[in-house]
Design a binder for these strands. Structure first.
Lengths: 222, 222
DNA sequence: CAAAATTTTGACCGTGCGGTCAAGGTTACA
DNA sequence: TGTAACCTTGACCGCACGGTCAAAATTTTG
């Protein structure tokens, strides 16, 4: 998951030293663990400090506050999180595009579950820290909904409410990250095995592609 | 949402006075708001006390600890939450049964969003307080999965992995409660309007019933 | 190597946390 | 109406919280 290198240290300096890069990275990684597990309010700087093998004042030397850490985490993650949606191509084959989108979202859930949980926690709490980011999301969804609608009107996919289709794709894929604890129990899996993502991929492919998206006959080209 | 009347007061008395009933109810209602928003760790007794118009020691007079409140909340809610799954009838019409299940789960999300978020929070945090309850869930899911499998083998519905089907139903329906903040923004809704549940119901009906569950020809009877 | 800049830390501050306790107020009931 | 059971509360405890600060340790740079 690549991202822009950009930190807000105590000072407003732009150039980052070797130590700054390392420590900030360690802090953000630890903070991702803590925030994604306990939510903003339930997380503590002490936890983050101890997880990143730093003293509390040292953590606060690199980030001015708990909120600053959280904010930077969100800024970093968001673009990568939205990227697959952005990639939906109006000129592509509708079924392929949607299938690729679902697959990419599922891969994100598999490879970046902490990031998924961070957002889940944030939205559960009423999204107090990401109001404007959600507005950007709405804009993007509106844009992409037009594409889906056009595909439907052209008879290339079934007529569905695009927004609820997105909700369904988001919820089913992110569920594998956010509700991992429940899924492991229900599936009877140990805490390390992770093979159920292949099954999930097959199931979602059937649910969305076989079932809902395509009409009786495959008509699309391109 | 009916539930068993059962409280664990400071004393082990069985009979509950009028005041006990009232206050305990008020505390649990306030606690549901707080826990569902902030999770166990992020919630505080002071918040619960102030929301229920009681002093903090007074709250702790009725419940011995923060954990005791949380535990009782979970005990209360769980059976109602699982009830629709329990109600799936092996002798019913498969499509009707699944449609009814989905509808009921969606109605729970609409009418009891706080309860849904309480569980979401708990599972996000790794389900530390509901380990045994999850085991009960597994048992129940295993049981009902056999039914789905039988229906599939009898050709009454498409062949799917029952467990992943359940995951998909849970995630899509609960999403409307858990991610409400995001949904309202994406849909451009105010904080009070709630009409999108009708749309959601129609969409999910199409996704699961039209699309996936029925085979090409409706064959089932009973 | 030495000065300058950066990094690290122990001690500390005010507040909020979960929880206790004894004393006073209220209610139910004979 | 008396009194026993129940309810409520202010004051308090010890600890954890987010955050500050000055001084010390370290690294970078001329």
């Amino acid at each position: 998951m690549p991202h822009a290198e950009n930190a807000s240290r105590a000072s407003t300096t732009q150039k980052r030293t070797r130590i700054q890069k390392e420590k900030e990275e360690a802090i953000l990684d630890a903070a991702l663990n803590v925030f994604s597990t306990y939510g903003f309010r339930g997380a503590t700087i002490d936890q983050i400090a101890s997880l990143s093998n730093l003293s509390k004042p040292n953590v606060l030397y690199y980030f001015n506050s708990k909120e600053a850490i959280h904010r930077q985490l969100i800024d970093r993650i968001l673009e990568d999180w939205l990227e697959p949606l952005l990639a939906i191509d109006p000129n592509g084959n509708p079924v392929w595009e949607l299938r690729a989108y679902i697959r990419q979202k599922l891969e994100l859930a598999r490879d970046y579950p902490r990031e998924s949980r961070l957002f889940a926690n944030e939205i559960l709490q009423g999204a107090p820290h990401i109001a404007e980011e959600l507005q950007d999301l709405k804009t993007l969804v509106d844009e992409k909904s037009v594409i889906i609608r056009d595909w439907a009107e052209a008879g290339k996919i079934k007529a569905v409410d695009p927004r609820h289709l997105f909700f369904a794709i988001w919820s089913t894929t992110q569920h594998y990250a956010d509700f991992d604890a429940q899924i492991r129990v229900v599936l009877g899996l140990p805490e390390d095995g992770e093979d159920h993502f292949e099954e999930a991929a097959r199931f979602l492919d059937m649910l969305f592609v076989d079932g809902l998206v395509v009409a009786q006959t495959e008509t699309a080209a391109s």
